[in-house]
């Protein structure tokens, strides 16, 4: 009799075993299902509307332009005299036009303005291989920060704008970093965990 009652338990035990550890890792799944064909999501370009960008190198991806974001661009609005001088000396000239640049980046390491800025033509930058457009500032930054540049090209540094699919448009170096103070500022967080004032530990 007891044996019969134990038999009744058997199906219960059998059923509970039917979800064994048959799972493969997500890496195997990726290798198995991946496809070189690009996924097309129609209308995805819409989310890039209003962004200005230029192709990078061979045109695999695009980089957001810089010059259109500069408030005092084009430089010739003021610096229209030869030798970098400004023509406007009247009262309209903002005395503090560039005074926000207090501790230019790299000064401690021996960098000076002229290491990046063209002494003759303020509307462009200079790198080791000649003039650099503001829109291609990555060529200048990447001179020293080559590791970051490699990551940035590949997508591990910087950020992609608006979409994960469709044309790859990424932020320029100066889109996130102030070229004169590239380290991120210290500030209060935008929000907090509810009731955070009294920190737990």
């Amino acid at each position: 009799m007891i044996r019969r009652s134990l038999l009744l338990l058997l199906p219960v035990l059998l059923f509970s075993g039917c979800h064994g550890p048959s799972h493969h890792g997500v890496r195997e799944r990726i290798d198995h299902e991946q496809s070189p064909d690009q996924v097309e999501i129609s209308g995805v370009e819409y989310w890039l509307d209003g962004l200005r960008y230029e192709p990078y190198g061979e045109g695999d991806f695009f980089v957001r332009t810089r010059s259109d974001q500069l408030v005092q661009f084009p430089c010739a609005r003021c610096h229209d005299q030869p030798g970098f001088a400004a023509s406007r000396t009247d009262g309209d000239l903002p005395e503090s036009a560039h005074l926000q640049i207090l501790q230019p980046h790299g000064v401690a390491e021996g960098l000076a303005c002229a290491h990046c800025h063209d002494g003759e033509d303020p509307s462009q930058l200079v790198g080791q291989k000649g003039p650099v457009d503001f829109d291609r500032v990555y060529d200048l930054c990447g001179t020293c920060h080559f590791e970051q540049r490699r990551d940035w090209e590949a997508g591990a540094h910087g950020k992609r704008l608006a979409t994960w699919s469709g044309p790859r448009v990424i932020e320029n170096c100066t889109g996130c970093h102030d070229p004169h103070a590239p380290r991120f500022e210290t500030r209060l967080p935008t929000t907090m965990y509810p009731g955070s004032e009294g920190a737990r530990r």
Partner: peptide, 10 residues
């Protein structure tokens, strides 16, 4: 770690 911080970061 602390998930309830609210001060100047980082």
């Amino acid at each position: 770690g602390d998930g309830r911080f609210y001060h100047e970061v980082p």
